[in-house]
């Protein structure tokens, strides 16, 4: 089924899906990033808590770095807002006609919320 589409990578990249396609691919990337992060974090917490391993502490240093926090918070906020958009379109199918506009609305919510968080985090980072 899936691989019988006969669409190569280049053709896939040329496909002009616009905002909804960007939202779809970002939803997948952010979801996969979070499942990897959370699973590793849970296993590392288990090893530290039950076996006194240093692995959890090593991973926590990465997780508490500014760059990782900016990345994972983007994943969380995007996945949440985009997920709520999908739910709204699922409940009221007539709105699917406006799905391009709905991705615009989504960015109008994400950019201020994420921007504010980035501002706070970077200010704190610069202050030391």
């Amino acid at each position: 089924m899936a691989l019988d589409r006969k669409v190569g990578l280049l053709e896939g990249l040329r496909y002009k899906g616009g905002g909804p396609m960007l939202a779809w691919i970002l939803h997948r990337i952010s979801g996969l990033a979070m499942i990897i992060f959370v699973s590793l974090h849970v296993v590392a917490a288990f090893l530290t808590q039950q076996m006194g391993s240093d692995l959890g502490i090593t991973l926590n240093i990465i997780y508490q770095s500014l760059y990782f926090q900016l990345f994972i918070f983007f994943c969380v906020i995007f996945h949440t807002v985009n997920g709520l958009r999908i739910i709204v379109l699922d409940i009221w199918p007539k709105l699917i006609r406006y799905q391009k506009e709905s991705t615009w609305l989504e960015w109008f919510i994400i950019i201020p919320v994420y921007g504010l968080a980035v501002l706070i985090m970077i200010r704190r980072f610069l202050a030391g």
Partner: peptide, 11 residues
Amino acid sequence: GLRVVVEDYTN
């Protein structure tokens, strides 16, 4: 979600 992604890219 991971299952859905896996099923998207495998036969």
